[in-house]
């Protein structure tokens, strides 16, 4: 068991790349155990740099990242941090089976030769069953659907025993049913005391599953409970010109100013309850 509950503190970090590009400037937030947090921002806002800092892949020029009260390196040694990569980052033709991938989560627990013991196999099997992938364990990963692929990598994070889960754009290319199943799983994992940090630019799903939100645009614009942070004015600051805010046209059962639709780069279609198309929202503010 953990000596202390998991926590994540990003303390005023700045990250500059060798080409002089300043990806993050004086960014900070803090999360405690049992939280699902959305890391929200446009592409290029520094979301992936934030992830890389938490994973120890880049070293902030200023400030520090603390996981469970200690430096990132110590947390990695204890297998506290788990990562679910974006679908595009994975080579799906790589000759590995579902079980092989999940077993990779156990490497940090194994000896130098990485020969799995019975305990490792049991953890892998349990993780596969939890995400409902045990039947497909011997498939090559390229043979899976988008949602199944996501679940395999979630199983890997579970097998690893990570307490801080980093998910990079988990809902891209995933249908709504699978998205709901993944969200249910994430909530169960949260209730066991984990921290789950989900990077996304998909605004619609954020309020349905995030307890907290961190808005980034080259720095942390706002961070805190979803109800306080995920507001129109804050989102406008985070998304700048890329965001459209729409007030519904008057010909609806609702008063015109009662509904505000926010979307980042898509134009939402609005329908009445009887299925009649009210209109496509185009009126930019």
């Amino acid at each position: 068991m953990l000596a202390q509950p998991i926590s994540l503190a990003v303390d005023n970090i700045s990250v500059a790349y060798p080409n002089g590009h300043l990806a993050l400037k004086e960014a900070g937030f803090r999360l405690d155990a049992g939280t699902i947090c959305g890391l929200v921002g446009i592409n290029g806002s520094g979301k992936s740099t934030m992830f890389k800092s938490i994973m120890g892949l880049v070293r902030p020029g200023q400030g520090r990242v603390l996981v469970a009260g200690g430096p990132v390196e110590a947390a990695l040694k204890r297998n506290l941090v788990a990562y679910v990569p974006q679908a595009e980052e994975v080579d799906w033709t790589f000759p590995v089976s579902v079980r092989d991938v999940v077993m990779m989560g156990r490497y940090g627990h194994m000896n130098l030769l990485r020969i799995p013991r019975a305990a490792d196999r049991a953890e892998v099997q349990a993780a596969l069953e939890r995400v409902g992938m045990a039947d497909l364990a011997d498939r090559q990963i390229g043979e899976l659907s988008g949602g199944q692929r996501k679940r395999v990598f979630l199983a890997r994070a579970l097998a690893q025993g990570g307490q801080l889960l980093l998910l990079d754009e988990p809902f891209t290319g995933v249908d709504v049913t699978t998205e709901e199943a993944i969200i249910a799983l994430l909530k169960a994992l949260r209730d066991e005391g984990r921290i789950i940090l989900v990077s996304t630019h998909n605004l619609g799903s954020v309020p349905t599953f995030c307890d907290q939100v961190v808005l980034v645009n080259r720095t942390v614009l706002a961070a805190g409970p979803t109800a306080e942070v995920f507001t129109g004015p804050n989102l406008l600051r985070a998304f700048g010109g890329a965001l459209r805010q729409h007030s519904l046209p008057g010909a609806t059962p609702l008063p015109a100013d009662a509904v505000v639709v926010l979307s980042d780069d898509e134009r939402p279609l609005v329908m009445a309850p009887d299925g009649q198309v009210i209109g496509r929202l185009e009126r930019d503010i």
């Binding site: 994973m55 892949l57 490497y107 030769l113 690893q160 990570g162």
Partner: peptide
Amino acid sequence: LRGRDLVLFCFDPGQARIAG
């Protein structure tokens, strides 16, 4: 001796880093 680590390194360097 180190083949398995090298496979992980080729497949998913991010996970390799995380596994310590």
